[in-house]
Design a protein around this nucleic acid. Structure first.
Lengths: 229, 229
DNA sequence: TCTGACGTGTACGAACCAGTACGTTCTCAG
DNA sequence: CTGAGAACGTACTGGTTCGTACACGTCAGA
């Protein structure tokens, strides 16, 4: 979730780590900020940018509405902070799978299947992505922090594909960005279109058996696509 | 788009088809209804359910706000009517491709590639689907008209898969609903996640060359997945 | 030509909601 | 221990927006 430990904002050097075991007392700007972001993430994910209410967010916070405007200036400023936080969280994941040490075929399947599991387990994160797309990606576009560092996803994939091609187990003409899109598309659909698809075709996406079936299918699809011949 | 010819609402039998060439004169309930739906479709697709403004819709209509409430009772009623109309339109398409007369492999590839083209050409329809999912599919759930008749998509696919399996060119264990999901996922992602993905990975989804590349790739993915062995 | 229902326009109300004015308390450097 | 700025709370405002009251036009059949 949202980090609770002190951020990088100005602090006197001497108290860095000093009063660590103190109770989360009266004034704690970083905790207040984090608390607001945490609540706002939930509210925006549930109700959308327009649908979310600042008063509602404030009430669920352990502080007041005044603080939201104090720290984030506007509803949109808060939304943007939430979005940056979410992307940071999504980004962080893939790096820690240790895929570079696995043989390419095992690495790719693991990447795909863990993506399905992850997306399924954090629906609210991807609802925010969907919401941002409804808003024409305006805030992602306006945030350099989101645009930077996002090569990582394709870099990991590029590495796997390169090794696979060299070993002769993958085709050589796979575009890493396109493949990343394919994996995201197949995995995200289960979250983004859960309600309409589920209602119309009677698929229960929350059923673990269905998830396992989909996870395997999506893995198979990707592996068959990259296979040579 | 929205049908302009008279609907099925009560009409005296004698004027059915009588004054056909008259100018779209003073009183024309069906045209008014259709006009409202048409404008509302655009507005809801562009701004979402909460984002759209009834006054704005009314102004762009050739009638007044009063009529929106007269015909649709509430903003939500209007939204629901729009949604039903959109699903009707989406449904109508696939039937007219004549796929049952093609050999299974050609039929499947044609289905996939035409889906990509169609989704790409009607982004606003699928923005509405995305919006509906943000709203937890509440209105789709409440509309029997949407839930009925939606077997068609899987029926066409089932038929192709059955014929392919019999001919020995497809595997026998493909779940039609799951395959439909795969095709939808790959095709819809290009519309639903256009902005965030495009910004982060520098993909221009409106470039025809990119669309052609994706269309072929998605076709290849599906064909490789259903192939036996 | 009269009548009742249907269709239409205008002007307004009431709630809702983002954002702010203003005042208070805390914290830490000097 | 003191002053100045940071952190915080309360109460309000002004604009927006869904929905409606009310009045009038129009049409088909009696």
């Amino acid at each position: 979730m949202v980090s609770t430990k002190a951020g990088t904002r100005r602090r006197s050097p001497k108290d860095a780590g000093a009063n660590a075991s103190q109770r989360a007392t009266r004034r704690d700007p970083d905790a207040t900020r984090a608390n607001i972001i945490e609540v706002a993430t939930r509210e925006f994910a549930e109700n959308g940018l327009d649908g979310a209410r600042v008063d509602e967010i404030a009430e669920k916070t352990r502080t007041s509405k005044r603080m939201i405007y104090y720290y984030f200036e506007s509803k949109e400023g808060l939304y943007k902070a939430v979005l940056e936080n979410v992307y940071r969280e999504i980004r962080t994941r893939e790096a820690d799978l240790g895929l570079e040490r696995l043989p390419p075929e095992r690495a790719l399947r693991k990447l795909v299947e863990s993506t399905v599991e992850y997306d399924d387990s954090r629906p609210h994160l991807f609802r925010l992505v969907a919401i941002e797309n409804i808003n024409y990606g305006r805030h992602v576009q306006g945030s350099s922090s989101i645009q930077t560092n996002n090569a990582s996803a394709t870099e990991i994939l590029s590495d796997i594909l390169r090794r696979g091609a060299e070993a002769g187990v993958f085709r050589k003409d796979i575009n890493p960005t396109d493949l990343h899109m394919v994996i995201s598309a197949l995995s995200l659909f289960r979250v983004s279109n859960r309600y309409t698809f589920g209602t119309i075709f009677g698929t229960d996406f929350s059923d673990p058996a269905v998830r396992r079936r989909h996870r395997k299918m999506i893995g198979d699809i990707v592996m068959r696509y990259v296979a040579p011949q």
